[in-house]
Design a protein around this nucleic acid. Sequence first.
RNA 1: GAAGCUGGCUAGACAGUCGCCGCCUAGCAAUAGGGGGAGGAAAGUCCGGGCUGCACAGAGCGAGAUGACGGCUAACGGCCGUACGUUGAAAUCUUUACUGGCGAAAGCCGUAAGGUAUAAGGCGCGGAAUAGGGCCACAGAGACGAGCGUAUUAAGUUACGGUGAAACGCGGUAACCUCCAUCUGCAGCAAGACCAAAUAGGCUGGCAUUGACGUGGCUCGCGUUGCCAGCGGGUAGGUUGCUUGAGCGUAUGAGUAAUCAUGCGCCUAGAUGAAUGACUGUCAGCUUUAGCAAUAAAGCCUACAGAACCCGGCUUAUCGGCCAGCUUCACUU
RNA 2: CGGGGCAUAGCGCAGCCUGGUAGCGUACAUGCCUGGGGGGCAUGGGGUCGCAAGUUCGAAUCUUGCUGUCCCGA
Length: 135
Amino acid sequence: MVQTYRLVKQAKMIKTDDFSSVFNFRKRISLQYLAIHYQPNTQQRPRLGLVVGKKTAKLAVSRNYMRRVLRELFRLGQHEICHVDLIIRVQKKFSKVDFIQIKQEFNTLIQKLNQRVNLNAQISNNINTAPKDNE
RNA sequence: GAAGCUGGCUAGACAGUCGCCGCCUAGCAAUAGGGGGAGGAAAGUCCGGGCUGCACAGAGCGAGAUGACGGCUAACGGCCGUACGUUGAAAUCUUUACUGGCGAAAGCCGUAAGGUAUAAGGCGCGGAAUAGGGCCACAGAGACGAGCGUAUUAAGUUACGGUGAAACGCGGUAACCUCCAUCUGCAGCAAGACCAAAUAGGCUGGCAUUGACGUGGCUCGCGUUGCCAGCGGGUAGGUUGCUUGAGCGUAUGAGUAAUCAUGCGCCUAGAUGAAUGACUGUCAGCUUUAGCAAUAAAGCCUACAGAACCCGGCUUAUCGGCCAGCUUCACUU
RNA sequence: CGGGGCAUAGCGCAGCCUGGUAGCGUACAUGCCUGGGGGGCAUGGGGUCGCAAGUUCGAAUCUUGCUGUCCCGA
């Protein structure tokens, strides 16, 4: 099958209910700059939500930059992520100088996320049949 | 040429790959093609308008804003011109000093410390102090009504009074109240309109105008509530308002200028948990190092900063580059 | 995106309207009361009045422009 890196509208979380249900699931991985919250979903793709508060950066330009960079990283790596609702929260301000560090941090976060979710999926496989694919 | 100052323009450029958001065309659709996609401040929200609702916003009081004169404008607290005050140079002029230099001397030049008058330009002005009221600490004999002390004189006649910003002045202060002139109804696109789950009982039309509530702070005025008749109403969410406009460019004419008139050409973002991005290459640009220089290497990929109904201003932030003009001085012809 | 408020001592606030002295509570330091702690009493130190211009003889106070912070509106 042909992988496209298009970011469709269904991969975006919009409603307040989606956000609060992910936060209530209470699963969280955090590093120096980023923190992610996640919840497995029933759709055939991961979904993304971004939280960049006014506290982390005062200027709208730098907040927009962080949002765009994180969305681009999600777009390029969306086929490596298992099917979860994912909220990325920025904990510390970063700019163009820190781009390589942000990229590495994002990749390690995704690796950790996949490990954890697959572990839980194996446990639930023993009880019922599993949804699986994802090459 | 040197110094000082003012105004305007620009905001790295060109390709390639992967993406995002509207529009147009084709298609049942998936999608494909074409074309567009942040700023001079988009910011602060300090003023003025358009637009929308409240009665096509109407009367009086109150409250607020502005304040030389004339003009421009849709309007303004903005802009332009004139007048006034204040400020304004390392230049020029001039004073003093020098165990400074040249010279027989007069003098000239240099250095340092001042002074006066200014240029272009910058900033300011808030109308009225005999219409009236208030205030003027400390110091000082006395602080806004005048009186007191000393000297003097026919005579409260005349002069002076260590302070203090200001003194027998019909002062100062209206960015204290006030008066005069002009202007302002209030709220804001989260305004307003339409489609419409869950839930809950209300909504529309006619009649009446005492009380209550609302409409802008109050009074009028107006609307709702009250009674009767008839059934639809509208929160989450969505659609619209939403981008063609006091629009931009250019030429000519009027005017000292701000600005205006006419002709021709152009369409230039519309997101809504919020698009306009990431990476690569070449050339410019900046910094550092090496080098007399040409240049080479490394780094940065730039300043301030991101539309949210739209315009006209003001204020604030800002790396560089380019252009035009004004004043003074020096030199050459 | 619109509409409002507040910055004064380490902390919480008055003073501003009506311009001339910056104060209250608490905290801090010292001393006393008590056998000690707690508590009380007395004395003292500590403030660029958020920043910058202007009006005025004189500004925490009046005017203007910035900075920070908080609240309200679907």
